[in-house]
């Protein structure tokens, strides 16, 4: 539907504008977009070029100069001494458990809240709506003491439980999706002897697959890019973000190594983006409108 609209807008043409004006306008559009794209790309290209230079070459050459001989030693330094490899490992460990946990608890919560209408579920639903408004970073002022009291400081469980437990947006996406799955389906399964957990497991969960994909993308990118949770709660277990952040200190003068670290950190994001481009556009938008 959206695609049809798009093509018909594209094929639309002005009737009364003279051709020369039209061409000038068209050229202007491309110039505008190319300038915008250059603004985005130049800082990134500098990083890539810098990461391939040796230390002295980087200091002495212009930022735009191509490396004489592309060097990969910076990448090795970043991977090993800069703990980027370790950071990637830790991040993926947290990612896997948190994403799995979010999907299981999120779908279960959404199933109960959307399907059963009783006082208890209504209260919980309202609380979730209000809680979604709380500013998450400011909340850390008091969350920190609770995590400490639980003895979870510097423990992977702290960020994992937080990622699972404070994700209201995912629950909202699941509930929205459940609105469009007919109730008669689970009722007929129930009448045929399927229990409610069975209905959830055999009918709801498989039908929620597109919503799960949406949540996975948002969640994965969100955790991968999250800096503050890891910085505050697991200061001695570096994630990608904190490893990069900690780079600034000891490698403050070695920008070429820092740049290599940045490139390594961006590559997974780039792969995800290029392979899921279309669904990312629609998923990120649908995820945020619910806020």
């Amino acid at each position: 539907m959206a695609k049809e609209t798009y093509t018909s807008i594209k094929s639309y043409q002005f009737k009364e504008t003279p051709k020369s004006v039209r061409i000038a306008f068209q050229v202007l559009k491309y110039v505008f977009l190319v300038v915008c794209c250059l603004v985005v790309l130049i800082p990134l290209v500098i990083v890539l070029l810098g990461s391939l230079k040796t230390g002295t070459e980087y200091l002495q050459s212009n930022v735009f100069a191509l490396p004489e001989v592309p060097q990969f030693s910076n990448y090795i330094t970043a991977f090993t001494k800069g703990h980027v490899l370790l950071g990637l490992g830790n991040t993926f460990l947290i990612e896997i458990i948190s994403c799995f946990g979010t999907i299981i608890t999120g779908t279960m919560t959404a199933f109960v809240l959307q399907r059963f209408s009783m006082l208890y579920t209504k209260i919980v639903k309202t609380i979730f709506l209000i809680v979604a408004l709380l500013p998450s970073i400011s909340m850390q002022v008091t969350v920190f003491q609770i995590v400490n009291a639980m003895g979870l400081h510097d423990n992977y469980l702290a960020p994992i439980l937080m990622y699972i437990g404070t994700d209201i947006v995912s629950i909202q996406i699941f509930m929205q999706f459940l609105d469009n799955i007919s109730v008669s389906l689970d009722e007929s399964a129930f009448l045929e002897g399927c229990s409610y957990p069975g209905v959830y497991w055999r009918i709801i969960l498989p039908m929620l697959r597109p919503a799960i994909a949406t949540v996975l993308v948002i969640k994965f990118v969100g955790i991968y890019n999250d800096f503050y949770t890891a910085n505050l709660y697991i200061p001695h277990h570096e994630t990608v973000s904190t490893a990069l952040y900690n780079f600034i200190g000891p490698y403050g003068a070695q920008w070429e190594v820092i740049f290599a670290g940045i490139v390594i950190c961006i590559v997974p994001t780039l792969i995800i983006f290029l392979s899921l481009q279309k669904s990312i556009y629609s998923n990120l938008v649908s995820g945020s409108v619910k806020e």
């Binding site: 608890t105 208890y120 919980v124 709380l134 639980m150």
Partner: peptide, 23 residues
């Protein structure tokens, strides 16, 4: 089902959001 499905989310909500908010 409601009780067991909501058990974990509500405990986490209490620990990481409601109690900190009241505090």
């Amino acid at each position: 089902t409601t009780f067991f499905f909501l058990l974990i989310p509500i405990v986490l909500l209490l620990i990481f959001t409601l109690i900190p908010a009241v505090n």
